[in-house]
């Protein structure tokens, strides 16, 4: 019996890290303390638009002066981690589906969608071989003169 207890305590001392224990209350703060640092040191992937603007000044100025200024570059172009060092090119992200995220008309007056210009992404706005960006510049969106 005593031998078993000693074996268990020795095994525990080897297996369980020293920082595992109560750091606050037993109910909510019983954990391995180094794990907090592990979570905090996860690499940051989305860099934010000022990082993009430090090189792509022209497009940055263009979109920041437009109604699309609220949209982060990386929302369409993907996370900037590793760019430009290891990831040479980020996706352009100009599919109809991307525009449709906000510009699909939905009959929901109580939602924020109601204040955004909306279309039906199907016919007649889905002619073959044409994309939204063929007429609308996502960095400088302006209503078409004949619309």
């Amino acid at each position: 019996m005593v031998f078993l207890v000693v074996v268990l305590l020795v095994a525990r001392a080897i297996y369980i890290p020293g920082d595992f224990g109560i750091h606050g209350t037993f109910t909510y703060n019983f954990y391995r303390q180094a794990n907090v640092t592990e979570w905090q040191s996860v690499p940051v992937k989305y860099q934010g638009r000022s990082y993009c603007g430090s090189c792509h000044q022209r497009n940055y100025d263009l979109i920041m002066a437009s109604p699309h200024s609220v949209i982060q570059c990386e929302n369409c172009h993907g996370p900037g981690i590793g760019h430009p060092d290891t990831v040479k090119k980020l996706p352009i992200g100009n599919s109809r589906q991307l525009c449709a995220r906000c510009h699909t008309y939905l009959p929901y007056p109580a939602s924020g969608r109601a204040v955004i210009p909306g279309i039906d992404p199907g016919a007649p706005h889905a002619p073959t071989g044409m994309e939204c960006y063929d007429c609308h510049n996502p960095h400088q969106p302006v209503p078409l003169p004949n619309s």
Partner: peptide
């Protein structure tokens, strides 16, 4: 919220 889902993608 307009339901664009950019938060989920990010």
């Amino acid at each position: 919220c307009v339901g664009c889902g950019f938060c989920v993608k990010a």
